[in-house]
Design a protein around this nucleic acid. Structure first.
Lengths: 164, 164
DNA sequence: TTGGAAAGTCAACAAGGCTGACGTAAATTC
DNA sequence: GAATTTACGTCAGCCTTGTTGACTTTCCAA
């Protein structure tokens, strides 16, 4: 059996183990998005709206271009989503005072309500999974996910993590 | 500080911790799909083709309806993908011998080559993440993901895990 | 004052989901 | 043997969400 200098088994790096991890990501992500998707269907919104709402809630007053770099989509794509959210009175967009080119984004009360509904559902599933797996498993979960990110995404993630 | 009967801290269940987990899933999933997406772009295929190829490779001879239940899409959606893969000679579809209504799906040599290219890339990232996080973290990672799945998905996942 | 950045808009397109309806062949049930 | 169900394929049409390209407006800064 292969051993590292430190003495741990390397069996967790076999192709078979990696494949299981890949499939676990696939099935788990479905679960991860299932509850918000269910809530949003019939409300004329989709996953893209959820993502925008989440990160506006997370960083109130964020600019459009900051949101673009977090979400990793084109501004045209984001704009379509943002426009409907603004029209529907979920998001407020206001000109920057220091730099008037920028638009600062906030959730309205109505937007806060939907955000709450969505994140409650998503957190409930997360909480159940965390509770079932235990604190040590959760620490490992976060470590692996973090190591799986592209460096640029990890930067975004850590910026949010600390900033919040 | 809240403690369970067993004595572990419950701090890992705070809303803040859960939010971090949610954002970690979001950013990590982007990394998870980035490499195959990059390979597929310019080849006229997308993520949907990747998923079909993955699970046909995983369960050679699987039927269309089995694939449908694993992927969780409609047959029209899957059929569109499957048709192009068959036309392009990546997948072979043959009538069942015991039940001639069924179509059994296999990767051709050409299909195997693409599957290899895609899964090599995805495994490389997974391997790096696993290695960076270590075996204990990997165990926790898998535990949390499994707990996050819908029961039906978990059934599919475990069936694959054991069958393979 | 002019160049470039930030933001927004319009148009067009593609992937990949979805529903509904329909057809065919094969298996199963009555 | 006839009727029904199952497995699969397909046509048509729709939606969301991503893309590129071209263009305008606004505004900051050199």
């Amino acid at each position: 059996m292969a051993e590292t200098p430190g003495g741990e088994s390397l069996l967790f790096l076999t192709d078979e183990q990696l494949r299981k991890g890949i499939e676990a990501m696939f099935f788990a992500y479905r679960g991860f998005t299932a509850d918000p998707d269910r809530i949003l269907e019939g409300k004329d919104y989709g996953r893209a709206h959820h993502r925008a709402i989440h990160f506006i809630h997370r960083s109130p007053g964020t600019t459009v271009s900051n949101l673009l770099s977090i979400l990793g989509v084109t501004k045209q794509s984001l704009n379509r989503v943002l426009r409907t959210l603004i029209e529907d009175g979920l998001v407020r967009s206001e000109k920057g005072k220091v730099d008037a080119r920028e638009r600062h984004l906030h959730l309205t009360d109505k937007g806060q309500m939907l955000e709450r509904e969505l994140s409650d559902a998503q957190r409930a599933r997360m909480r159940a999974a965390y509770r079932a797996a235990g604190p040590q498993a959760v620490a490992g979960f976060r470590q692996v996910l973090e190591a799986m990110m592209d460096p640029e995404m990890r930067r975004q993630y850590n910026r949010l993590k600390e900033g919040g």
